[in-house]
Computed example of a mutant assay.
Amino acid sequence: MKLIVKLISGIVLGILVGLFAPEWVTRVLLTFKGLFGQLLFFTIPLLILFYITSGIAGLPRDSGRLLGTTLGLAYGSTLVAGVLAFLAATALVPLLTGGALSAAEAEGTAPAAFISVEIPPLFGIMSALAAAFIFGLGIAASRAENLRRLFDEGRDVIRALLVGVIIPLLPFYIAGVFAELAAAGTVFATLRTFGVVLAMSIALHWVWIVVLFVIAGLRAGASPFKLIGGMLPAYFTALGTMSSAATIPVTLQAARSNGVRESVAAFTVPLCATTHLAGSTITIVSCAVAVMVLQDGLAVPSLLSMIPFILTLGVVMLAAPGVPGGAVMAAVGLLGSMLGFGETAIALMIALYMAQDSFGTACNVTGDGAIALMVDSVAPADSAASQGPS
């Protein structure tokens, strides 16, 4: 929650600088924005390579049907939630915002940065994704422990960079973005859209939670609203931690209180914490549509064109880092390569997402309880007792 306060402070600071500060102050902030952006885009392919490789290689072994059922339900929930979010956002965002002004105009009218430095990534986003699958599946098949340890340690290095440098400096980066928008006169249209998307995303989170628990309640023969009530401790804990991983103990307890067998809960909840990202997908897709509406250079694609993005997004966020904003950091590369987002659009995307990250995480972990109930309803008693986490 402190990060959200810092991000809001960064937005306010950026607006004040862009509207009232001397030009040299705005240029200093824009210089930092440019340098930080280069570091961010250099880091994203490394994040995808190390995190996805480590996540695939670390999936439980010899878990058979229980593993397949859990992963299938988690991925299916993520994909359908993304499609729902896209349909709702394309229908509501243009209608409610009334055609916001273009944020892209800021690039041509705001003051220039003092210096500009390019840091090309070591490899592209899709190359990182392909390599992650090759190494992850290869390590899982060959049980190459030394190679697995290498990727785990690489993941830890990237996590340290995120936690120690990128996440703490994000408010200043966002301040630079909004200083640029304020100087160009498009900031208030942007803020109006932010409010609309925030309310819409939270509403969609709750729609999807109800859908999941109606399905789970039908399978378990229980009231879906009673089951949702049992998961509320996990929901509110996730609002504060902004991390599915950090909420696992509370999610486990809530799932058990809803009648999920101990062995099934112990297997599904930790696995879903890194593979079930329906709430994060709803937020990312909704925010992406909002940014497309804000920018004249970006056209909202058709559903058929958007589905490949949603399919890939569900994979790229696999084992997203257990830090605030990890999902959108993993998605940044796809936004550029598949949806054509430029630096300003990606910066707006990060600001929009981070403001709602706690609600998306809360939706993720609450949905984990529904998936645990579904798995519990199909897992045989003998296999559920024997297939714990490995």
Rank of each mutant, 00 (worst) to 15 (best):
D368E: 14
S383L: 15
G314H: 02
L335K: 01
D357L: 00
S383V: 15
A331G: 05
T312K: 13
I310Q: 06
A319G: 04
M317W: 06
A355N: 09
M317V: 15
G336A: 11
Y353C: 14
L303S: 10
A362Q: 04
F341I: 13
G369W: 08
G325T: 10
A319M: 04
V365C: 02
A379H: 00
C363Y: 02
F341R: 04
G340P: 05
G369T: 14
P321S: 13
A327I: 04
L334C: 09
T366H: 08
P380C: 02
P308Y: 06
A345P: 02
G336T: 15
G322Q: 05
S383K: 12
A319Y: 06
M317G: 03
F309A: 02
L334G: 14
G360D: 10
M329I: 11
Q356W: 00
A347C: 03
A320H: 14
L311H: 03
S377K: 07
L352W: 02
T366P: 04
L334A: 12
M374T: 09
M374R: 01
I350W: 02
G360P: 04
P321L: 11
F309C: 03
L313D: 04
G325L: 06
M317D: 10
G342V: 11
L335T: 12
A347Y: 04
V378M: 10
Q356I: 14
M374Q: 08
A355S: 12
A381T: 15
A381S: 15
V315E: 04
E343R: 11
F341H: 11
C363R: 00
L352V: 04
C363F: 03
L339D: 08
D376F: 10
G322H: 06
V323S: 13
S383T: 13
G326I: 09
A362S: 15
A370C: 12
